[in-house]
Structure formats: structure tokens, C-alpha cells
């Protein structure tokens, strides 16, 4: 019974992911080595690690933007071999198309699915409201602040109702105040949409604030060094002793890695 539940609840499975890059001199650099992970429905997982540990590469492999040298990525039990709308991705740089309005950026995925104009605009608008951007729907991306652009990118990723949301250091370019605000919004959105989220960050605080579970990678080659559950009550207080203690512990692991 317990086992059955475990199977049903699994969202994403990584099976022995190894990624090598050809360095051009006959040698292969091993970026990721034998990474196996299971991520459950509605779970928020943060990937942390020293720079050069291949955490962004791991996220790109999950997304299907890169192929693993060995191993397999399964989303809802199906192999991931190329990028698809089953996953929504938020990039480090918003990656919005500057010639389209915010609304047209968010509705682009629906446009390619040949949804009628009226329908897709209504749906896009709904997600813009979710991220608090309805007022800026007709602006161009370059007219928005960095935080607003990332919100638009969140709406764009959610509009196709993906099974899993991926975020690659999405808030690293934002100022601390905006960053906190958008982290809180992500939690709120996660609670309303009940999406599983996998994100990469170099901020320990961000990882602990958002994640149910942390994956700590070691560098060269990137391997799973430690899996940690974050058992803090939500909403989380960044200044609480438990939070700070967790932070110390993770920093210790990263430093010692």
C-alpha cells in the first residue's frame, strides 16, 4: 500500500544521469555523474552546489534541452528526449521575445496550439493576473522592471499548464527586496496551482525558503552529495532560529564539499 502510493506520487525520476562534454582533445569532461533522483507530485526541490557542479546542466537535461550521455529522465513515467510543453521553464534571463507585448509573449504557446485569439488572450490574462501583471499586459518586455519581466516569464511558463515547473537561477539578477517579494509569490502560486517545482540556485537562503527538499551537488564531477528535507512550517521566517540553523548546516555542507 505504501509502495503503491509512492509510485502514484512520483512526478519526475532521474535514472543514473551522466553528462560528458567532448573537450575536443579526445578527453571527455564529466559534468554530471550517475545522478538518480525522485521528485514527487507537488514537491518543491532546490538544487544547490558550488559553481561548476553542473546544476544548470542538470536542469537543462531534465528539460530535454540537453541529452544525457547515459541515463534517463522520466516525467510522469514517460521518457524525456526533447523540450516539450509538458514542462515549463523559467530562465536566468527572462528570455521574453522583445518584439511581442507581454500578453503576446504569454499567449505564444497557446497561439502555436492554434487556440483562437480571444480564448488565448483570456487565458493569458488569467495567468498575468496570477502574477500581478494584468496592468502591464500591453507593454513590451523592455518597458518593465527586472522583477516584472521574471513575473511575465512565470506566467508564460504556467499558461500551458505544465506538469512540472523548472527554474534556472530565476531571481539571481534581481535586487534583494524584489527577490524576496517574488519568492513569496512563487510559494503562493505553488500553493494555488499545486505544481511540482525543480529549481537551481546559488542562494542557500532562497533554497531553504522555497524548497521542501534540497539536493546538494558536489563539484567535478557533479554528484549527489546530500539530500535534505526542509521541515520548516510555512510561511517560513528567514530570521527564525530553525531557519538560520538549517542555513548554517547547508553552508557547512557546501563549504566542506
Amino acid at each position: 500500500m505504501v509502495l503503491l502510493e509512492g509510485i502514484r506520487a512520483m512526478k519526475l525520476e532521474l535514472k543514473g544521469i551522466t553528462k560528458e562534454f567532448d573537450q575536443g582533445n579526445g578527453n571527455n569532461a564529466v559534468i554530471l555523474q550517475d545522478i538518480s533522483l525522485q521528485i514527487n507530485e507537488q514537491e518543491v526541490v532546490g538544487i544547490l552546489g558550488p559553481s561548476g557542479c553542473g546544476k544548470t546542466t542538470l536542469l537543462r537535461v531534465i528539460a530535454g534541452l540537453e541529452q544525457p550521455t547515459h541515463g534517463q529522465v522520466l516525467l510522469d513515467g514517460e521518457a524525456v528526449t526533447k523540450p516539450s510543453a509538458r514542462m515549463g521553464m523559467i530562465f536566468q534571463e527572462h528570455a521574453l521575445l522583445p518584439w511581442r507585448s507581454v500578453l503576446d509573449n504569454v499567449s505564444l504557446g497557446l497561439e502555436m496550439q492554434e487556440m483562437s485569439r480571444k480564448e488565448r488572450q483570456e487565458k493569458a490574462m488569467k495567468y498575468l493576473e496570477l502574477v500581478g501583471l494584468q496592468e502591464s499586459a500591453h507593454s513590451r518586455p523592455y518597458e518593465l522592471s527586472g522583477g516584472m519581466r521574471q513575473r511575465a516569464a512565470v506566467a508564460r511558463a504556467l499558461v500551458l499548464e505544465p506538469s512540472l515547473l523548472l527554474m534556472d537561477e530565476p531571481f539571481s539578477a534581481l535586487d534583494p527586496q524584489t527577490r524576496k517579494q517574488i519568492q513569496e509569490d512563487i510559494i503562493r502560486i505553488q500553493e494555488t496551482t499545486a505544481k511540482a517545482i525543480v529549481f537551481v540556485t546559488h542562494s542557500v537562503e532562497e533554497a531553504i525558503f522555497l524548497a521542501d527538499r534540497l539536493v546538494i551537488l558536489s563539484a567535478k564531477p557533479g554528484r549527489v552529495q546530500e539530500l535534505l528535507e526542509v521541515k520548516l512550517e510555512r510561511p517560513r521566517d528567514r530570521m527564525s532560529p530553525q531557519f538560520l540553523e538549517m542555513r548554517e548546516r547547508v553552508l557547512g555542507l557546501l563549504g566542506g564539499g
Binding site: A63, L65, P83, A85, G88, E93, A95, M112
Partner: peptide, 10 residues
């Protein structure tokens, strides 16, 4: 990044 973002829309 534009191409990747759009390929993530399928």
C-alpha cells in the same frame, strides 16, 4: 535563450 524558451512551449 529565445529559441529555447519557445521550444519549451513545444
Amino acid at each position: 535563450s529565445w529559441q529555447e524558451a519557445v521550444s519549451m512551449m513545444g
